[in-house]
Design a protein around this nucleic acid. Structure first.
Lengths: 188, 188
DNA sequence: TATTGTTATACTCTATAACTATA
DNA sequence: TATAGTTATAGAGTATAACAATA
């Protein structure tokens, strides 16, 4: 079912490579292009299917995705985080996090603790119920997702995790540089 | 709630330290969880940085991302597509595609051709300018993205493409089944 | 009656701008 | 003056519902 057409598509694209070296293989170059669409598609599929929302529901959480994202960020960190740190981990902007945290506070899933060294800052911390909720959510999602990878060879699973981690790091690092270079600098 | 995979590993806090790996299974299980957040983060980073919008601009395209998505879907297919086919490839819903196509039509980047076998259907086709625009866009994005992977070993690049492709296919397939099973079925 | 696509509308997520309070 | 966070507002992206035309 996987339409893996040879895709002569790249043919007409002038390989104005970074002038480093002639592309090792046009095939690779062509395939490279497929990485970004796949990430987009994957993300869109996850959004549309609402797996995460279902998992939240299964965990007894009446929370939308961004709120769950905050919970998971805190759980993953294993330590209280500042608003700005949460925003960076979620790759969103400050005010967005402020609102999510307020909602979570009202439900008693997180609490604020003052930073003794800087009174502008407030640290966000999971409460007991918040920790439980996050754990239930994780269990639910993991149950679903491990089914997806159940048939994969161990080596492939390992490689996927490793490569995806590196890709994420490399991309975010490069994007950060891009922003510094000026908001109007064209990619490349 | 509903039956979930037995999963003792997640109950407690992960990421204590990858260095010691006495229980490879547990570690993997814990790490597995990191895959989804990374995809989310990657996607968010790409959105926020507007790489794609910059590339569109660099290609002389005053189009938003969804419209470019349609263009790229058509270019990748290499053949005219129906509205429904575009929607499926983009993992979005029909009406959304209708609107994007209308915008592209006005700019002369795509055109509709009637399907002789089914008069309900109209096939969407890239025009000459549309093809050129799509190619310019691809060149621009590729220029940026190949920079990200430039330092990667060939083997890793290959593996990334292969694994990401399979992951996308597996996930979308499983999600499709999930939808069929009823819109209220919990993940599993 | 089922399928393909369209129109009209509403909602979710996230960003930007202007502000407050510390530093 | 610079930084962390908040309030208020705006916009992009996508979904749902009701409908039309063809099969």
């Amino acid at each position: 079912m996987t339409a893996k057409t040879p895709d002569p598509a790249e043919a007409s694209v002038p390989s104005s490579g970074p002038s480093s070296a002639p592309a090792p293989a046009d095939d690779q170059h062509a395939e490279l292009l497929a990485v970004l669409p796949r990430i987009t598609r994957l993300s869109a599929a996850l959004t549309r299917s609402r797996v995460t929302d279902r998992a939240a529901e299964a965990a007894g959480l009446a929370l939308d995705r961004p709120a769950v994202g905050v919970l998971i960020s805190l759980r993953t960190a294993g330590t209280p985080l500042r608003i700005g740190e949460i925003a960076e981990r979620m790759q969103v902007v400050g005010p967005h996090v402020t609102r999510q945290v307020q909602a979570l506070e009202k439900r008693g899933l997180v609490r604020r603790v003052a930073d003794p060294h800087d009174r502008r800052v407030s640290l966000i911390e999971l409460t007991g119920p918040g920790t439980d909720a996050a754990n239930r959510y994780v269990t639910s999602v993991l149950g679903w997702f491990s089914g997806v990878l159940a048939d994969w060879p161990d080596q492939d699973r390992e490689d996927l995790i490793r490569l995806l981690t590196r890709l994420t790091d490399d991309v975010t690092a490069r994007l950060a540089r891009l922003e510094e270079d000026g908001p109007d600098a064209p990619p490349r």
